[in-house]
Amino acid sequence: MVSHSLAAAKRLRKELQVLQKSPDDADILLEHNPDNLLQWKAWIRGPVETPYEGGDFELDIRCGTDYPLAPPSIKFVTKIFHPNVHFRTGDICLDILKKEWSPAWGLQAACRAVLALLSDPDPDRPLNCDAGNMLRGNADVMAYEDTAAFYTVENAQFLSWPVKAESKKKS
Rank of each mutant, 00 (worst) to 15 (best):
D60N: 13
K99M: 09
H32D: 02
R13N: 13
R112G: 05
K169Q: 11
Y67W: 09
I80E: 02
G55P: 12
L127P: 04
F57S: 05
A156L: 01
A113S: 11
L29K: 01
E145W: 07
D56L: 12
P123H: 07
V2C: 14
Y67M: 04
R13Y: 11
I80Y: 03
N155H: 15
D140Q: 03
V163Q: 09
G46L: 07
S22G: 02
F76D: 00
L118D: 01
P121A: 06
Y151H: 08
S102C: 06
F76E: 01
C93T: 01
P68C: 07
P126A: 06
D130P: 04
W43V: 05
A148I: 03
F87T: 07
S167M: 09
W161I: 07
S22H: 05
K98E: 14
M1Y: 02
Y151G: 03
A148W: 02
L19F: 12
S119V: 00
F158N: 15
L16Q: 13
Y67S: 00
E49N: 15
T50R: 00
R62N: 08
T152F: 00
D120S: 04
F81G: 03
R125V: 09
S171H: 14
N138C: 12
P51Y: 00
F158R: 07
D66Q: 15
E154L: 05
K14V: 07
T147L: 12
P68F: 09
P162Q: 09
D140S: 08
N33C: 11
P162R: 04
P72N: 00
S3E: 11
